[in-house]
Computed example of a mutant assay.
Amino acid sequence: MSMMMIPMMISLILPPVVFALAFCLAARSSADREKTSPFECGFDPHKTARQPFSLRFFLLAVVFLVFDIEIVLLLPIVMEATSKTVVYGSIIFLLILVIGLLHEWREGSLDWTSSTKQ
């Protein structure tokens, strides 16, 4: 056998053996049924879909997404910025986002202590 055949044979034999061992050794019972059920946002997928959704959770998720995407898009531009217009534009954009965040905070959308307000 050549030197290329040994690693190729190992790579073809080892994954099925490991998969078969894991499948045989895995303990499956009816108690594990809850672990394998789909889970999304705390809702039971087998119940009705017409349940009230927390508007506070939605608003906080939107605020998080806005700031997360803003960081992902703006940080590489600022790090590689060579002109002053890019830096000034980024600062203006950040100021607009901070003003929006302060407005959300003053409005009470980020306050989770009072759960009655929607």
Results as ranks from 00 to 15, higher is better:
F19Q: 07
T48Y: 05
A22V: 15
M4F: 15
L95Q: 08
V18C: 08
V98Y: 04
K35E: 08
S37H: 04
I96C: 07
T113Q: 09
L25G: 14
V87M: 01
F43V: 06
Q51G: 09
W105I: 07
K117T: 14
M5D: 13
A27S: 13
T82A: 06
F53L: 07
L94T: 01
H46W: 14
F58E: 09
P16R: 00
S37P: 00
F39R: 15
D44M: 03
D44P: 00
I77A: 08
M3K: 06
R33F: 05
A20V: 13
L55V: 12
L12P: 02
G100V: 02
S109P: 02
P76L: 01
A27D: 05
E107P: 04
G42M: 05
D68W: 10
A49G: 13
F58P: 00
F58K: 14
L97G: 00
I77Y: 06
E70F: 04
A31S: 09
R106G: 08
D44W: 05
M5V: 13
R106F: 09
T36F: 11
T85V: 10
S11H: 15
T116I: 11
P45S: 10
F57T: 11
M4P: 00
F58M: 12
F23P: 01
L97I: 01
H103V: 07
I10P: 11
I69V: 13
V87H: 00
L94G: 03
I92G: 06
R56P: 00
V18E: 04
T116F: 10
R56Q: 06
E70Y: 02
D32F: 05
L14N: 08
L102E: 03
S2V: 10
L14F: 11
V87E: 00
F64P: 05
V63K: 00
S83R: 06
G108Q: 09
M1N: 11
I92D: 04
A49Y: 12
M5E: 15
Q118W: 08
K117H: 15
M4S: 15
T36V: 12
R33S: 03
L73Q: 12
G100Q: 06
S115P: 01
P52C: 04
V98R: 05
A20S: 13
Y88M: 02
D32K: 00
R33L: 07
H46L: 14
C24W: 14
M5Q: 14
L21Q: 11
E104H: 04
C41R: 11
T82N: 11
L110I: 13
G100N: 09
F53Q: 11
E70H: 02
R50W: 03
H103N: 06
L75R: 07
E107D: 13
D111E: 11
E70D: 06
L55P: 01
S109D: 08
I77D: 02
E40Y: 12
W112I: 10
F39Q: 15
V86N: 06
G89L: 04
D32G: 04
P38Q: 01
P38V: 01
A49R: 12
Q51L: 07
P76M: 02
G42Q: 05
E34K: 13
S115E: 09
F67M: 09
P15Q: 01
E107F: 15
A26V: 07
S114M: 06
S83I: 06
E80G: 00
S90A: 09
L65I: 05
M3G: 12
V17P: 12
F19Y: 13
V78R: 00
P76R: 03
V18L: 14
L21Y: 12
E34N: 07
S11K: 15
L65A: 10
Q118N: 09
V86I: 09
